[in-house]
């Protein structure tokens, strides 16, 4: 920016912005801190900031009492599985729509998007009954399927906007050199599309990891991912703040880190390319 900014002004900005940033982040920070306290320290009044006995006891307890890692693993399988399956279905579709657009391509894209607008509760009853009759309730297979379908439109859209940015000339040059369709895809297109695909994967794992309508309604003890497992803390017995914090910290840490890497793609993915 060409405008001269005084150091004073910059310092003031810095102070205000950091203040606001820490305020917004505070609930997460507080959860992380509390996870290292004892239960008594967790509810101490006045609150303890850093001067408590740091302990990992809660993390151990959470795992021992509830087999935490089973639910963690469910989350991993469901979010990664649904994303990869979705990607496998979406890549050909997005490729075709980006590079061989027909008269109806735009309509198809818009229609796919419109399936995303369907409120989940509108199809809760039939899906629940279908799942019950097929024995899919409380299975990871069932959830992987549902989350694949939920995120498929987003995956197709994101890939489509990324593929669109690949210049057509390069593909034509490859075709001139006698590259077949397969070569074109494998050797020309995919290497150029990898960054876009990586962002798509990242965003979709995040969305699937945090999905909390179907995971809560279609799972019980066995296939529950972390979203549903954490919900079991809503009717606890005894002191539980530190344990809730430990379980929460483990549940959000991986996604927080992935999310920070994908913040740019987040805008594109969640606005379907309407804001870049």
């Amino acid at each position: 920016m060409a405008r001269a900014v005084t150091t004073q002004r910059k310092a003031l900005n810095t102070v205000i912005a950091w203040g606001v940033g820490i305020l917004i982040f505070f609930p997460i920070l507080w959860t992380i801190l509390t996870s290292f306290k004892t239960e008594a320290e967790a509810i101490a009044d006045p609150p303890l900031w850093f001067n408590f006995h740091w302990t990992l006891e809660n993390y151990v307890t959470v795992q021992e009492r509830s087999n935490y890692f089973r639910h963690f693993w469910n989350s991993v399988v469901i979010s990664v599985g649904s994303t990869l399956i979705g990607l496998a279905i979406a890549v050909p579709a997005a490729w075709a729509m980006a590079f061989v657009p027909g008269k109806r391509t735009k309509d198809v894209l818009m229609w796919m998007l419109s399936t995303k607008m369907l409120p989940p509760v509108g199809v809760l009853v039939p899906l629940y009954l279908i799942f019950r009759n097929l024995g899919l309730l409380d299975t990871r297979t069932g959830l992987v399927f549902v989350l694949t379908m939920i995120n498929l439109p987003i995956i197709i859209w994101m890939l489509y906007t990324y593929f669109k940015e690949i210049p057509n000339d390069i593909l034509e040059a490859a075709r001139m050199d006698g590259a077949g369709l397969r070569d074109e895809v494998v050797h020309v297109l995919l290497p150029m599309a990898v960054p876009g695909m990586a962002s798509t994967v990242l965003l979709n794992i995040i969305l699937a990891w945090n999905e909390a309508f179907w995971t809560l309604n279609l799972t019980a003890a066995k296939a529950a991912p972390l979203t549903a497992f954490i919900a079991s803390y809503s009717s606890p017995e005894g002191l539980f703040y530190a344990k809730l914090s430990a379980a929460s910290t483990m549940a959000i840490a991986p996604i927080l880190i992935m999310g920070w890497f994908s913040q740019k793609q987040l805008v594109r993915g969640l606005t379907f390319g309407a804001v870049k």
Binding site: V20, G21, I24, F25, P27, I28, W30, T31, I206, W209, N210, A212, L216, L226, T227, A228, I230, A231, Y233, S234, L244, S245, S248, A251, I252, I255, L256, M258, G259, W260, Q263, L266
Partner: peptide
């Protein structure tokens, strides 16, 4: 500032 968006709904509600 963007961190809360990545917190799963059940966690943020319970916290």
């Amino acid at each position: 500032v963007i961190a809360p968006f990545f917190v799963m709904p059940t966690v943020s509600a319970l916290v």
